[in-house]
């Protein structure tokens, strides 16, 4: 019983995000004219998975008490690269996928190396590397276009026989292969440790550099996975600063809604995934209720502000004003 209490306390943020998503998605499917049909779910899932992957990437870095403002640009870069390479025969396609993922790893590693060994602040570093990644993306694909192996694309973005969207299965697979083992490993715990208190982690003999580098590398990898999925959905690549910027910003919003602490050390990528789903469902809800699409940006902003302001309710319980300052 006592154990359950601690588990609940640890996963409060994640569970809240899941609950909010379930309610919102219920409303959405309940009011959609097509009902809970496969198409609705698949379209929603595909959009959600893209942001979910980028949000997972953001989570890794945020857990270390950093911030990665280049996730969206890695996502765009991977998209442009994939639209060039992930075509042709099975062998060529496989090679392309590997190169795209590798590019993500390299981007992440570059961020990590600059932050760790260059001792620059993550926010400034990733703001600048983001510009670099965007430059490369633009160089790869000056005008939108390109192609992708359509067999693979269809296989990963449509439905399984049971009506389950394949993209969700892909996401689940990534969670099982990347996130869960990382969370349970020593490196994963070290990522939480440095986010929670870096001096304490250092004094405890935690390998800080290794953990931080891992966080950035996995972040790059996950963003690249997202870019790859984007290519499979759109069949093309586009070097768009707008897309990159909006994914970066939404990833931060998703992380916050998913209960990950921006101060590091607490939260889960699972929460961030549901945070991403919540964000995506907002847009769909507006559509279902016949709102003018012009209202969507305002609505998203207000929801984001509302969500973070709700978190401020805890302030009412603070009885020692010094606790306000952390």
């Amino acid at each position: 019983m006592g154990d359950f209490r601690y588990w609940l306390a640890e996963n409060k943020g994640t569970l809240l995000a899941v609950a909010v998503f379930v309610i919102m998605f219920g409303i959405y499917t309940g009011n959609h004219t097509a009902g809970f049909s496969g198409m609705v779910v698949t379209t929603a899932a595909n959009k959600g998975v893209l942001l979910a992957l980028v949000a997972m990437a953001q989570t890794l870095v945020v857990l270390t008490a950093g911030i990665d403002l280049s996730v969206g640009m890695v996502f765009v870069l991977a998209n442009c690269l994939a639209s060039q390479l992930v075509v042709g025969s099975a062998l060529e396609t496989t090679f392309g996928v590997v190169v795209v993922l590798l590019a993500g790893v390299i981007c992440g590693a570059l961020n990590g190396i600059i932050v760790i060994y260059g001792r620059l602040q993550p926010i400034v570093t990733t703001l600048a590397t983001g510009a670099m990644f965007y430059g490369i993306a633009l160089w790869l694909r000056p005008i939108p276009g390109g192609d992708v192996n359509s067999d693979l694309a269809d296989a990963l973005t449509e439905q399984l026989p049971g009506g389950i969207p394949t993209s969700l299965v892909v996401l689940l697979g990534i969670v099982l292969v990347v996130w869960i083992p990382l969370r349970r490993s020593e490196v994963g715990r070290a990522i939480y440790a440095i986010g929670s208190s870096e001096p304490a982690a250092y004094m405890s003999g935690v390998n800080i550099d290794r953990a931080r580098l891992t966080a950035y590398i996995v972040s790059g990898l996950l963003s690249a996975c997202g870019g790859l999925m984007l290519t499979f959905i759109t069949y093309s690549g586009e070097a768009s600063a707008t897309i990159g910027g909006s994914y970066t910003l939404n990833s931060i919003a998703a992380v916050v809604i998913g209960g990950v602490s921006l101060f590091g050390g607490a939260g889960s990528a699972i929460g961030a995934i549901f945070g991403a789903f919540v964000l995506r469902t907002i847009g769909d809800l507006l559509f279902v209720f016949d709102f003018d699409p012009l209202w969507q940006p305002l609505f998203q902003g207000v929801i984001l502000l509302g969500a973070v302001t709700l978190g401020s309710l805890r302030l009412l319980r603070i009885k020692n004003r010094l606790d306000l300052f952390g």
Binding site: E186, R189, Y192, S197, P199, A200, V206, G265
Partner: peptide
């Protein structure tokens, strides 16, 4: 004197932090 414990981790995680 300044504690070397990591606040967000559990007691068990902290005790076994270096060599779990």
């Amino acid at each position: 004197q300044e504690l070397s414990l990591i606040p967000d981790l559990s007691v068990a995680d902290n005790i076994a932090i270096a060599n779990p």
